[in-house]
């Protein structure tokens, strides 16, 4: 087959792209008009706002894609995000023995992100090692990690503030649009390559497609699963860092239902919930669909309760148009 034919094939598979195009067109059509006659939706500021708003959930859903591809689920990422947000704020508001902001900031970010990765690795070890169902393991850790975050912070907000101290400096840097969007773009590219061009990525899909056959083919199932959950945790941890910067605080109560948004982005992107089938590209499209939709409804001043109802319909529609016909 010619390369362009293969590319066209892949594009056709990405029916989510059509859904995205449809929603973008709709958003343009119903967008309010600025005094100068241009459509607000299309203004550069608005478009980059959308990207910034989806970046956090986008980063979390990259890891969720891998988890779901193995046939698992991770309900704990919202709590992990809260833990990391709290940890980074705690780290930044603690006294630092050295001089200079940069090492202090790096240390705080690394500690928070790695804590997320560790939480994920523990999930993975329980799932792959003790062979408990992912739903149950991550449901438990969703509760446990949230508890840990609250306990560490005494259930209080840790304000980062706007002064000239290290914490404020961190927030000023890490809430910039280019940095947030850039992080998402880089991570998305890395995970795209990881999933589609590496042995690890192939193993992820093979395990979700047929775990028994994966065992018979000698694939390192345990290792792959532990790494997948650890990556999901790392990404949630890093998203938590960005969350702290954006909101100028570490708060153990944030990130509730984040896991559900991430799962929604993944399945809207055409990844099969039972595993084996799906792609990072699809998840990016799914995330964009959610982002544009939210933006469109907000620009239209739609009541936030109505917004939820509309989202519900869109999720079902987006999955429906990508459905494989089950008979023949």
């Amino acid at each position: 087959m010619k390369p362009w034919a293969a590319a066209a094939d892949r594009l056709r598979e990405l029916k989510g792209l059509m859904a995205l195009a449809g929603i973008v067109l709709l958003a343009i059509a119903i967008s309010p008009v600025a005094p100068d006659g241009s459509r607000i939706f299309l203004q550069a500021g608005n478009l980059t706002d959308i990207l910034r708003q989806i970046s956090l959930i986008g980063i979390v859903s990259l890891g969720m894609t891998l988890v779901i591809l193995t046939g698992g689920i991770d309900l704990s990422v919202g709590s992990t995000l809260a833990l990391s947000t709290s940890l980074v704020a705690m780290g930044l508001t603690r006294a630092w023995p050295g001089s200079g902001y940069a090492p202090h900031i790096l240390y705080a970010i690394a500690a928070a992100t790695l804590a997320g990765g560790l939480a994920g690795a523990v999930n993975g070890a329980a799932i792959a090692g003790i062979e408990i169902q992912p739903f149950i393991v991550t449901l438990a850790s969703m509760i446990g990690i949230r508890g840990l975050a609250k306990w560490l912070t005494n259930n209080a907000n840790i304000d980062i503030g706007f002064g000239r101290d290290v914490a404020a400096e961190f927030a000023a840097v890490f809430r910039q649009k280019p940095l947030v969007i850039g992080s998402y773009a880089v991570l998305a590219a890395v995970f795209w390559v990881l999933l589609s061009r590496t042995v690890f990525g192939r193993h992820v899909r093979a395990i979700g497609d047929n775990e028994t056959a994966a065992r018979y083919a000698g694939l390192p199932i345990r290792r792959v699963k532990i790494v997948v959950y650890a990556l999901a945790g790392l990404l949630a941890g890093f998203a938590g860092v960005l969350y702290a910067a954006e909101n100028h605080q570490g708060n153990p109560n944030v990130g509730v239902a984040y896991e559900l948004d991430a799962i929604a982005a993944v399945v809207i992107g055409g990844t099969r919930l039972a595993g084996g089938k799906g792609s990072i590209a699809g998840t990016i499209v799914g995330t964009l669909i959610m982002g544009v939709l939210t933006n469109m409804l907000r620009l239209g001043n739609v009541d936030s309760n109505v917004e939820m109802m509309v989202k519900a319909v869109i999720i079902v529609l987006a999955v429906a148009i990508q459905r494989q016909r089950s008979v023949d």
């Binding site: 390559v193 061009r197 590496t198 042995v199 990525g201 192939r202 899909r205 093979a206 497609d209 047929n210 056959a213 994966a214 018979y216 083919a217 000698g218 694939l219 084996g276 089938k277």
Partner: peptide
């Protein structure tokens, strides 16, 4: 045996794909 949703090529290469990488990539 087979991963039914994966391609004929990927299925054939599954037990040996480590040895067929180029610069660490498939």
């Amino acid at each position: 045996g087979l991963m039914m949703d994966m391609s004929v090529l990927e299925n054939g290469a599954l037990a040996a794909c480590r040895g067929m990488r180029r610069f660490g990539f498939l």
